[in-house]
Write a protein that binds this DNA or RNA. Structure first.
Lengths: 341, 341
DNA sequence: TGCATGCATGTGACCGGTCACATCCGCACG
DNA sequence: CGTGCGGATGTGACCGGTCACATGCATGCA
C-alpha cells in the first residue's frame, strides 16, 4: 500500500472507486454527473461502492477540470444592513438547495481600487457564478468592472439603467405610492420623505412617493437625503421635527424610521399623534416597536433566490427564467394616524 | 497560435509568464509565493511580466496542488441575528485582509442530517480552513462532527466544555455582573432575567447575573427562557409585565429587550419609570430607541477576527496566538432608572 | 452476410498550479 | 586544485477530476 504524502489525507479518489467497482474513472464520473449514458446495472454498482468507500467528489479538482467552480460568489458592499443581509440570506438558501458553494466578497466602497480588486477576485474560476448586490454605487461599479465573459447576475434597485446583466429588482414604486396614499387618505396635506442613498433619481421609493403626491394634487416637499448610517437619518429627522408643517413622513428604510422617530421624540412630538411615520423594508421586530411601525415589507430573500436562478441560467447558457417575486406590501400598524384636528 | 477549447477563456497561465520571462514555471511560482530563494533580479523581471500580462494565479489550481484552498468557510446556523452576522462580518474583514477567500455554509438546525452534510461540505479541500460559529446547539454539533484533521476554530459562548478545537469567546460574565450591579445600585431589590437559548447552564450572561445577585444578597428569581425569535421573547415579557414585583429586567439580548419593552408598553408600564430594562449585544440603533437602551456592547467583529487568526495558525501548524479582545462593556443610557418610590 | 447505427464504456491528454528532487554555478576551504 | 557547500533554478510527476475521442459490441436493415 503506497503511503500518501505526509500531511495529506488518504481520502478515496475517483480512481479508487473505479478500481473497486471494476469500471473506468470516466464511468464513475458519469454516474456522479447523472449522465444518461450509463446502464442501470453499472450505475447501481458504482453507487454502492461510493457509499461503501464514503467517497466524496473533490470540488477543487472538478472546478479545475471544468474551468469553473460549481458555486456562486456574492459581491456586496455590506453584510449587516437589513436589505443586504436579507438578500444574502436568500441567496445562500437557494444556492444550498442547488448544491452550490457560496462565497462572499465585500467591496469596500471607500477604498481606492477595491472595485478592481473585487472584479479580479471573482474573475478567478473558483468564484463560480457571480451575484452582485448592487443597491449602491459600489455595487454598480463592480457590475461594470466585471469581465464580459463572467456568468453573473445582479440584485439592483429599480430604475437603474445601463446594466448589461440579468438584473432583478423588487417593484417598490407601487408599494411606495400605496404608503403615500395611505397617509394622504388619513388626512395629511402632504407627506415628507427622508431618502436612502440612491443611484437613480427615479428609484422606486422616491418615484412612487412623487407619483402618489402628484396624483393627489398634494405639494411635493423637497426630499431630505440620509446616508446608510443611523446618525445621518437622525439629523434629517431633527430638521423635520423642527418644522411644524410636517405631519407625515415616509422614511426610506426602517433604520431611518427609527432615527426619525427618536428625533421626533426628543422634540416632544408624539408618534402617531403629532406626526405619522412609515418605514420601508419591514425589519424583523418592527412590529414590536412602540408604536409598532407601519412599513413596507420587502421580500429580499425572494430577490436573492431569484438572482441564484438567474446565474444558474447564465451558467447553463439557458435563457433567463421568468421569476415571480412577492411584491412589496404595505403593512399598516400603529405609527400612522390622522393628523391632529 | 493554438486556439483554446471553445468556451474557455484565454487567460495567461503560469507557463505563459515563465516563457515570457525566460525562466521556469517553478521560479514564477516561487515569486508568487514570496519564496526567499529567488534572486532580486529574477524576481523583478518576473513581476514585470506578471504586470504586463495581467497574470492572476488560479486559486483552483493552487488548491489542487497544495491539497487545500487558501480560504475559510464559516459554518453557522444563522446569518441575520446580530451576534452571528456581526461575527461573520469580522471574519470576512479579517480574511479579506489576509487574502483569504470566504465561504459560508448555513447549517439548518432543524433539518435532519444537515450537521453531517455541513461537516461533509467543509471536509472538501475547497473549503479551506473552517470557522464554526457555535453559539448554539447546531454549531456545537457541527464542531463535534468535524474530522479531526481539518484545520478549524470556533467562536463559542463562554462556559461550553469539551470542544477539542481552538475556541474563542467573549467574557460576558463580567459585564453581565456589572449590568446587574448597576440595576441593584439604582435601588432595585432584585433583577429578573430573560435568557437566550444557551448550551451551558453557566453561560456568561446567566452566570454573571447570578453571581452579582448572590454577592449582593439579593433573591435569585427563576430564569425566564426565550428563543431566538422575537415572539417568544414577547411572551416572556408578558409574563414579567404582569408581575408587579418585577422592577428590573436583564434581557439576554437586545431583540429580547425590544420585545420585553413592547410587552411592558402594552401592560401600561413605563420604561424606565415602572420597570428598568437592560439589553445585551449593543445592536446598532439601540441608542436611538425610545428610551435609548442601556445595554452591554459586545465586540463580535473582534471575536470573528480572532477566529481567523486562530485558523490561520492551525493552517500554518503554528501555536495559537494570544489575542486580546475588547471586553464586553456596559453602556448606560435611558432604559434604566431607580424604581418608583 | 455486410455494414451503418447507437449505446455503453474506456483511454490519453489536460486543467494550472505545487511538490520533491536534480542540477548548475560560484565561492571558500583544506 | 579538488572538494564541499549553499543559493538559484529547472524537471518530471502529481493533485483529482473532466474533456474529446476511440473502441467494443449488439442491433437493425438492405
Amino acid at each position: 500500500m503506497p503511503s500518501p504524502r505526509p500531511g495529506r489525507e488518504t481520502v478515496p479518489s475517483i480512481r479508487d472507486v473505479a478500481a473497486a467497482a471494476g469500471v473506468s474513472r470516466q464511468t464513475v464520473s458519469r454516474v456522479l454527473n447523472a449522465s444518461p449514458k450509463v446502464s442501470a446495472d453499472t450505475r447501481r454498482t458504482v453507487m454502492e461502492v461510493i457509499e461503501r468507500l464514503q467517497y466524496r467528489p473533490n470540488r477543487v479538482a472538478r472546478a479545475l477540470g471544468t474551468g469553473r467552480a460549481r458555486g456562486v460568489t456574492v459581491v456586496t458592499s455590506d453584510t449587516m444592513l437589513y436589505g443586504y443581509a436579507s438578500t444574502l440570506q436568500g441567496i445562500e438558501e437557494a444556492a444550498r438547495v442547488e448544491g452550490l458553494a457560496v462565497g462572499v466578497r465585500v467591496v469596500e466602497s471607500d477604498r481606492e481600487g477595491d472595485v478592481r480588486n473585487a472584479a479580479d477576485y471573482v474573475s478567478d474560476p473558483s468564484a463560480g457564478g457571480v451575484i452582485v448586490i448592487a443597491f449602491d454605487a459600489a455595487g454598480i461599479a463592480v457590475l461594470h468592472a466585471l469581465p464580459e465573459s463572467l456568468p453573473a447576475a445582479a440584485a439592483i434597485e429599480p430604475g437603474v439603467r445601463g446594466v448589461a446583466r440579468p438584473a432583478i429588482c423588487l417593484d417598490e414604486q407601487q408599494a411606495s405610492a400605496e404608503a403615500t396614499r395611505h397617509l394622504l387618505a388619513l388626512g395629511h396635506r402632504t407627506v415628507h420623505h427622508v431618502a436612502i442613498p440612491s443611484e437613480s433619481e427615479h428609484s422606486g421609493r422616491q418615484a412612487g412617493w412623487r407619483r402618489a403626491l402628484a396624483e393627489a394634487g398634494a405639494a411635493v416637499p423637497p426630499v431630505v437625503p440620509a446616508g446608510w448610517d443611523v446618525r445621518s437619518a437622525y439629523e434629517a429627522g431633527r430638521v423635520l421635527a423642527a418644522d411644524p408643517g410636517v405631519t407625515a413622513i415616509l422614511c426610506g428604510n426602517d433604520d431611518i424610521a427609527l432615527a426619525v422617530r427618536r428625533a421626533l421624540f426628543e422634540a416632544g412630538k408624539d408618534v402617531p399623534g403629532d406626526v405619522s411615520i412609515v418605514g420601508f423594508d419591514g425589519v424583523p421586530g418592527s412590529e414590536y416597536w412602540t408604536p409598532a411601525l407601519t412599513t413596507v415589507e420587502m421580500d429580499f430573500a425572494g430577490l436573492g433566490r431569484a438572482t441564484v436562478a438567474a446565474v444558474l441560467a447564465e451558467l447553463a447558457g439557458a435563457p433567463q427564467p421568468a421569476v415571480s417575486l412577492t411584491p412589496p406590501r404595505l403593512v399598516v400598524r400603529e405609527s400612522t394616524a390622522p393628523p391632529r384636528a
